[in-house]
Amino acid sequence: MKPASWRWVRPAAGALILAALVLRLGTDAFVDAMRAVDATALALGAAIALVTTTAGAWRWRVVARQLHVELAMPAAVVACYRAQFLNVTLPGGVLGDIDRGVHHGRSVDDLGRGLRAVAWERTLGQVALVVVTVGALVVANPVGLTALVAAVVGVVVGAVVLMGLTRVSRVVAADVRALSSRSALAKVFVASLVVMAGHVATLAIAARTVGVRMPASTFVPVALVVLLVAAVPLNLAGWGPREAAAVWAFGAAGAKASQGLAVAVAFGVIVFVSTLPGVALLSVGRRTSPNLASADAVARGAIRADARLGGGT
């Protein structure tokens, strides 16, 4: 499939998944979840997002340093907020990450390394998520062996998509060697744990907001499965696989399918609001970065980079 076609397959797949959920479960879960989200849930979500965004920015900075493209921590936090907002508002759910890769690459006069730093940061984060999810399923196994198999299959498919069947194996091998430092990997894993914990906590807030209760020993593995599937880049601004995974995972854990959908919708609303600082930072970042190109040029670069990265997250 041509890269241009692939860019439209991802959001189209997310839209189809949402349409299928609406046909099966109706719109009540969507409406009820949006009404249930209150100011307390939004404030807690925003506070958690500050922590997870900072942790994600630190992870990116560690990876970038290993690839010899320095990145200041304040700039990384600002870029991550911008990227999160773009990810939850633009089709495909990945253009924000590509945008920060393009901006960083151009600011250090090395677009390739800038893009690869983001790609590896996202890859290592997903690997950590897979390891923790599989471990949680082995220990608690609340949704059965099928979930474990699905997680492993998801990892394989995600890795293939992320690497885009790359033809630059020598570059990848060099990056792997650069990233193989135990100290760097330890930092990346710790940052990933903080990000995971924050996302699980946000899902817990969403669940409590819509009235879904279950023991932590069951909820945590279910939440991790939802987060893992949500990383699949076949979504419409983040929507689609996440909701389908919540319907299945929460249902397998004993809740109603509609409750799982409501949790995912509430989570989506909370996450969207928590990314709103990125709106202001979009314009601030454009005005204060003398080495960056115009918005139109960046957009064109992001699209070309999207094609080269194969749509990976």
Rank of each mutant, 00 (worst) to 15 (best):
residue 185 L to M: 15
residue 278 G to H: 06
residue 164 G to T: 04
residue 153 V to A: 14
residue 265 V to N: 10
residue 53 T to M: 11
residue 4 A to K: 15
residue 76 A to L: 00
residue 49 A to G: 08
residue 269 V to C: 00
residue 1 M to D: 12
residue 193 L to T: 08
residue 271 V to S: 09
residue 72 A to R: 15
residue 81 Y to C: 06
residue 194 V to L: 08
residue 3 P to A: 02
residue 306 D to F: 12
residue 211 G to K: 07
residue 205 I to L: 05
residue 46 A to H: 11
residue 20 A to N: 12
residue 111 L to G: 06
residue 138 V to G: 08
residue 255 A to Q: 14
residue 86 L to I: 12
residue 192 S to H: 01
residue 308 R to E: 02
residue 234 L to E: 02
residue 279 V to E: 06
residue 273 V to Q: 03
residue 286 R to E: 15
residue 304 R to D: 13
residue 162 L to N: 07
residue 16 L to C: 11
residue 282 L to H: 13
residue 277 P to I: 01
residue 162 L to Q: 05
residue 220 V to E: 01
residue 268 G to Y: 13
residue 260 G to I: 06
residue 65 R to L: 00
residue 95 L to A: 08
residue 149 V to D: 05
residue 90 L to K: 07
residue 201 A to N: 01
residue 152 V to Q: 07
residue 253 A to K: 02
residue 97 D to F: 12
residue 138 V to I: 10
residue 201 A to I: 13
residue 299 A to D: 00
residue 113 R to G: 06
residue 89 T to M: 04
residue 24 R to T: 08
residue 150 A to D: 03
residue 57 A to K: 15
residue 52 T to L: 10
residue 88 V to G: 01
residue 141 N to D: 12
residue 99 D to E: 01
residue 171 V to C: 05
residue 299 A to H: 08
residue 277 P to A: 09
residue 209 T to G: 00
